[in-house]
Design a protein around this nucleic acid. Structure first.
Lengths: 180, 180
DNA sequence: TTGCAATAGTTTCGAGTCGCTACTAATAGT
DNA sequence: ACTATTAGTAGCGACTCGAAACTATTGCAA
């Protein structure tokens, strides 16, 4: 079998195993994925559109998943006052608690050698970036690594959103991020 | 973010992208995964039970997926004469044709450097083996690497199934495989 | 300013996955 | 012969997913 075929199969099987084994609490894999995204995204990137773009599904599907998360009390809705169309979803305490728990796959990955996981992460990152670029998708990288990111003495400044950012925020996922 | 968390996220996103982009023909991701398995599994490992064990779903779900594949003409049913309970699914010509097509993710992986994909494959293989071992799942490795595999001048002999195997068959997936 | 296009989000529909339980048929063990 | 086990299927309810239709809001431009 060609190495790329074999590797694709490995990725698919690992993801499948992970999804099956991560029915933590009353969250299914998709809901868990959405929650994970919301836990790491900055305050400008937590709308249904952003979630659906990140997960690669339609807005309709995402709308339902978020509604389910809302109903179960893992997130809360914040409607914007500037643009009355947009909604932002923030994690509740219950949401934060569950988002910290690790999945079986993470435990396995944690048992790899330090250099092994570093190399794995690099190769996967490269692959993901290439794949995303080919589809014209956004990368959803971390603020700190963006061309619009200008470091300040405390925190940073975003030249795109024209906003001051706190230090923890520069480590969050931003939907607008463009690699420097 | 911890490297194992980041890596898990990468695997999950790549798999999601791959699944979304591989709606080749009229096959959805699960049906495609089942077809891929059948394309690489040997003649002793192509029953609904084996497919469900490989994909990590229940037999009920697999039964439906296979029924769908059958209906669409990608596979055909062969009922065993020895054990009248078991069914074997073989790919039709239509099935072989589609199983040879590559997915977008494969194309991306193929563009990686040779040593990079080798290292990637190794790390993923190790992770998968560990994860499967923890769940008590079968590994579904290749015949040739099994403790029951005894090479012959032409092909091989399996001491578990007590059967002669042709050379191509020793490169196929076997549900009974146990790493030597 | 008015009007139209674009955008954010929701709703609904049909097909399909998935876990679960219950079921039939065939085989294996005692 | 009786029972337990195994292979496969059927039906149920919850959910995902893509697609299309829909509302509300905003942006743009004549």
């Amino acid at each position: 079998m060609k190495p790329e075929t074999r590797t694709r199969e490995l990725i698919s099987r690992l993801a499948r195993l992970d999804a099956a084994g991560s029915w933590e609490g009353d969250l299914n894999p998709t809901q868990r994925a959405a929650l994970n995204y919301l836990a790491h995204a900055n305050r400008f990137s937590r709308s249904p559109s952003h979630v659906s773009s990140y997960l690669g599904t339609t807005r309709g599907t995402t709308s339902q998943s978020l509604k389910s998360l809302l109903l179960k009390g893992y997130v809360e809705e914040k409607r914007s006052t500037q643009d009355k169309r947009v909604v932002r979803y923030d994690l509740t305490n219950k949401g934060w608690n569950i988002s910290h728990s690790t999945t079986p796959l993470e435990d396995v990955l944690a048992s790899l050698a330090k250099d092994e996981i570093a190399v794995l992460q690099d190769a996967l990152t490269t692959s993901l970036q290439t794949a995303l670029a080919q589809n014209g998708n956004q990368e959803f990288g971390i603020c700190r690594t963006c061309i619009h990111h200008k470091p300040r003495i405390k925190g940073a400044y975003c030249t795109l959103l024209e906003t001051e950012l706190s230090t923890p925020e520069t480590d969050q996922i931003c939907a607008e991020q463009v690699r420097a």
